[in-house]
Amino acid sequence: MATITQLNAVLDVLKLAERLKFELRHSYTSSGRQESVAEHTWRMSLMAVLMEPYLEQEIDMAKLLKMVIIHDLIEAEAGDMSILDVLRDPSLKLVKEQREIQAIENLRTKLGEPLGSEIYELWFEFEEKSTYVAKVANAFDKLEVQLQHNEADINTWEPIEYDLSYRMDRHVTFDANLKMLKDLIEEQADQKMKASGVDTNEIRIRAAAF
């Protein structure tokens, strides 16, 4: 049976996680507002449920969902730093890593054993992409981001995001069905850009050379 201390720790983390409902990401929704971290995580979870039957390998679904749900939990403390910010200023990568590691260590301490260590290990497994389940979770993370961009007004896109639409291959090469899903999402982006008068052939060439 759980102790009062353990349940209070769970409540503390749930209170912390509530921040993800208003911690905003760079992505915009189709309605024209910025999405929250919690919304990104929710649709990643749904993507995992819907794609699980089509993955090439059998997967521990409980572990996959845990990994998806906790992967951005640290942003409740560390905040969300867009990859675009890091691309513009590479020195921010170390700052981001330090903040996130401190946040996951604080989370492990707050939750105690054994739950704290489980969350801690799942987070690092996701970050290191050392297993099939971690690679799948990372693929969903990248694919959901592009899917959201596709659904947003193209006026919200930054120039680098045109190129990023064609740079998802390395996240899905380990699974043919994820590669197919990536191709469909990439085609949506391609059509969206063409509809706004963008020369996507030039962008594809540039992205391929990256």
Rank of each mutant, 00 (worst) to 15 (best):
Gln146Phe: 15
Asn138Val: 02
Ala62Val: 13
Trp42His: 09
His149Asn: 12
Val37Leu: 03
Ile4His: 08
Val145Ile: 06
Ser82Val: 10
Glu186Phe: 00
Ile70Met: 14
Leu107Asn: 09
Asn106Cys: 05
Ala78Ser: 15
Leu46Glu: 12
Ile83Cys: 05
Leu84Ser: 12
Glu58Arg: 15
Arg33Met: 05
Glu75His: 10
Tyr120Trp: 13
Ala152Gln: 01
Ala152Ile: 03
Gly112Leu: 00
Ile74Asn: 14
Leu11Lys: 12
Trp42Glu: 13
Val136Asp: 00
Leu107Ile: 12
Thr173His: 04
Leu65Asn: 10
Met180Gly: 13
His71Met: 05
Gln146Asn: 08
Lys129Asn: 05
Leu7Gly: 00
Val95Met: 08
Pro159His: 05
Pro53Thr: 07
Leu84Thr: 14
Thr5Glu: 14
Lys21Ala: 06
Lys194Met: 14
Arg204Thr: 07
Lys194Trp: 04
Leu50Gly: 10
Glu58Trp: 09
Lys63Thr: 09
Asn106Pro: 00
Ala139Gly: 02
Glu105Val: 12
Lys93Ile: 09
Ser196Ile: 01
Thr41Arg: 02
Ile160His: 12
Glu128Pro: 00
Thr29Asp: 05
Val198Cys: 04
Gly197Tyr: 03
Lys15Arg: 11
Arg206Ser: 14
Glu186Val: 11
Leu184Asp: 07
Leu7Thr: 06
Asp72Pro: 02
Ser27Cys: 07
Phe126Arg: 03
Arg33Asp: 14
Glu39Leu: 04
Ile119Val: 15
Tyr132Pro: 09
Lys129Asp: 02
Ala195Arg: 08
Pro159Phe: 06
Ala78Asn: 01
Ser165Met: 11
Thr3Val: 06
Ala209Val: 10
Asn138Ile: 02
Met61Val: 09
Tyr132Thr: 06
Leu11Phe: 12
Ile205His: 07
Gly32Gln: 02
Leu50Trp: 12
Ala38Arg: 11
Leu73Cys: 06
Ile160Val: 15
Leu178Asp: 01
Thr29Leu: 07
Leu107His: 08
Ala207Asp: 04
Leu84Asp: 11
Ala207Glu: 01
Ser82Gly: 11
Lys129Arg: 15
Leu24Val: 04
Leu14Asn: 15
Glu127Met: 11
Tyr28Phe: 15
Leu111Glu: 00
Ile185Lys: 00
Arg33Asn: 13
Lys110His: 04
Ser36Val: 01
Gln102Met: 09
